[in-house]
Amino acid sequence: MSEIHPLIIFIAAIFTNNILLANFLGMCSFIAISKTLKASVGLGTAVVFVMAITTPVSWIIYYELLVPLELEYLYFLIAIMVIAGIVQLVEIILERYSPALYYTLGIFLPLITVNCAILGACLFFVVRNYNFMQTVAYGIGSGIGWAIAIIGMAAIRRRLRFAHVPPALEGIGITMIITGIMALAFSGFAGVVSIQ
């Protein structure tokens, strides 16, 4: 297993290896939801929350259950079901114990099951051989990184309404270009810390 300190992985997952800007994950909901700032904050929070739970749980299942049983090839199937199950569970628990939070995050939770960032984080810790603490740090860091990217994008798109964009570039086209510029800005962090 790699010997990188969890704190470094945490920072790197937010800035240098941002799961959205460097690994392109979670683009679909990123483009659809970043239209409004309020929804972006809601979805961003929900992603941080779900990712912080799913990655450690998947780690335990992968290394404590599938590896000893030599069933690693079933991991895709298990991972996607773990994510769907946890999302359901979080939804039920929130509804019961924190209705206020449930109403803020509620509509976003089903969207998260098919958010590739969540599944991506669950697959990357296998590829990169993280140990448990590194995985926890990576999960939380990736969630925060994704949230920062979508909230920043929503704020930029709000300003963009008053800009004169070429008609053919309006909407998704300009969003992609701005995402590119954001990715460039984030790659400026590259020298600070790096993982793979």
Binding site: N23, P166, G173, T179, A183, S187
Partner: peptide, 15 residues
């Protein structure tokens, strides 16, 4: 080769 290149390419293609 870097990620921004992909975003720019797709943006231009959509344009």
């Amino acid at each position: 080769i870097m990620p921004p290149g992909a975003f720019f390419m797709l943006g231009i293609l959509i344009w």
